[in-house]
Write a protein that binds this DNA or RNA. Structure first.
Lengths: 355, 355
DNA sequence: GTGAAAGCGCTAACAG
DNA sequence: CTGTTAGCGCTTTCAC
């Protein structure tokens, strides 16, 4: 079916070695021969198979990428960064998604290892306690985590705790006192925990009472009645919600609107991720922004450094790389008039944040 | 570094043939031997390399996927569908993006061919006149197009012309008469042309004057002043915009809002794609919806049918597969009061659409 | 039930 | 400058 180097050799009337040289070291072969070989290559539409090369122990130039889902643009944004650099540097990507499923995570890593990827860029639920990552460490397969918040493993992320802390501080500075944190049902991720920690610290520091994160089903078309009740009724209903990611924030906003709440008049919303899409919303979504594309790029660079170091025997790099986050003060946050908290001063000036 | 079948054989004290059988045909080997071999496999953490297998002429079970970008969720949605089926059926995906660049398109196809993908799922700018696709046809490499609107090649799409026609009819039925179509700067795609054709037909049939599509820069942070002027000033300014895709619609909406126009009061907006995200907007984006995920799934099924037919010698399938579209009547469309068109009847009842 | 050996597409020593 | 040959990891006859 597909022509091999043998076919080319036969067609050109030379040996396969000459054909190989014509491809890989053109200067070492007679120009006339070279020309004939090239004509045969064109005539047969021959493409050297990477299989043969790889088999010879050469590099696969294949990098595995594992993300939970593409439905959340945060991963699509990372991927854009990775893909850009991979294309530029002549690497190929093999992409797998896990849909947050541990078994699929296992299979994905397995599959990519079988394909002899030179390294792995991935996002897992909980990096610290992930047995598969220990296995990779043990077997010396290089990897870099994206978004995972750990100091134990090579990773690129923002400081989730600090970023969340600053975000919630911003809400507090706008006069909010009853602030609830919302998280997806798969809240057990390392970064979600760090974000909740930041929330807790900001609340406590302001003398406010932090609450456990309220779990919200991402995929449901409507907010669960119990959740809605929690958010909308009672004298202690929150005036602001800190959502553990932007997609969740958008889902929640829709739910609130359907319940006839106006945003930000009746509820302020702060997301996390800084999706590009968030700026296109109306009102634009306030968010704690991670440089997603840059996280992908940085993960790529770190991995490639390690990969080439591996091949060329260079030194080691530090484990966790923390990229700067930023606050996007979108219009989904209102300075609160404290109808029910009469007495609290209204704060709206720019604030100095402190870790 | 990574253990080979040889290492396992040595470790277990058998020949590589036995190890191979233990893996691929366990029932043909002595249970005791099998057990020993398996222990060695575990001990050495051996994974059979697909390279060896492929080299033996076996199938690669690798499918190439090429999309213009992941920044537009429409492709992420398709990919979700493809990925789901691929994972379930034991295939691997190799993903490349082109950023709408012809040269990258060429390289992507080239790279994937080198990797001996069994087939290709892709979206190109203009399918009918694409020389690379002719080449694939000639060389017998199987592929299925997503979203491309062509009857000449295997493809899965919606009827872009009809869908756009119905969308614009809906605008007209809501009383709009000055309707402009907006397209991205890379408007030269087959589907954009079909959508503009649908727009033109709907306008003409209603006795209205269609206009050429107005090109808008997707990536710019602001709408170009000339575009904004076109949309907002003069007695003939449009009352509704038909945007060639949802992402464009969102960018345009932001631009209009910044220019202090309210949506839909001052301008109605209709998108195309039916992004899941659109429903989360406020107001929810009206859109001509394509079943993106399903398009990905259908493309996968078609490709796999052809791939297996190729291997098992079954028959051929028809070329273009058209999936049903739907209209999402979001709140970005207002029934127009025809301030300037006094005399036009206001239409807001549900309508029967006709091709 | 097991082993020896050939061969898949290719590269790299080594010969000529 | 070109050809011969071995060998990469694996599967698969074919003997034993």
């Amino acid at each position: 079916m597909t022509p091999t180097i043998k076919d080319v050799a036969a067609h050109a009337g030379f040996s396969i070695a000459t054909v190989s040289r014509a491809i890989n070291a053109p200067h070492t072969v007679n120009p006339i021969t070279l020309d004939k070989v090239r004509q045969s290559i064109d005539a047969l539409n021959f493409r050297p198979s990477p299989l043969g090369r790889q088999l010879r122990g050469e590099r696969t130039r294949l990098i595995g990428v594992i993300v939970p889902t593409l439905a959340n643009p945060v991963f699509a944004e990372c991927l854009q960064g990775i893909d850009e650099l991979a294309a530029a540097q002549g690497y190929r990507l093999m992409l797998m998604t896990t849909q947050y499923d541990a078994e699929r995570e296992r299979r994905a890593i397995e599959t990519l290892r079988e394909h002899r990827v030179e390294g792995l860029i991935l996002t897992v639920a909980d990096a610290d306690t992930h047995p598969l990552l220990d296995e990779l460490d043990r077997d010396g397969l290089l990897y870099v985590l994206m978004h995972n918040d750990t100091v134990r493993r090579p990773s690129v992320s923002v400081d989730n705790r600090l970023a969340a802390y600053e975000g919630v501080r911003m809400l507090i500075a706008h006069g909010h006192r009853r602030i609830l944190m919302l998280a997806g049902t798969l809240a057990a991720s390392d970064r979600a925990r760090q974000r909740h920690l930041g929330y807790t610290q900001a609340m406590q520091q302001a003398g406010l009472a932090p609450a456990p994160a309220l779990e919200v089903d991402f995929n449901a078309d409507e907010l669960a009645p119990s959740v809605l009740a929690h958010l909308t009724s009672g004298p202690n209903r929150p005036s602001a919600l800190f959502c553990s990611n932007d997609l969740l924030a958008m889902v929640v906003m829709r739910g609130l609107r359907r319940a006839r709440l106006q945003i930000p008049r009746d509820m302020s919303i702060l997301g996390f991720d800084g999706l590009a899409m968030g700026e296109l919303l109306s009102p634009p979504l306030a968010s704690v922004c991670a440089p997603n594309r840059e996280i992908g790029c940085a993960a790529w660079r770190r991995l490639l450094t390690r990969v080439t170091a591996n091949y060329e025997g260079l030194g080691e790099t530090p484990l966790a790389l923390t990229l700067p986050h930023s606050l996007r003060e979108g219009a989904t946050i209102a300075a609160i008039s404290n109808r029910s908290d009469a007495g609290t001063t209204r704060v709206s000036q720019r604030l100095h944040l402190q870790p």
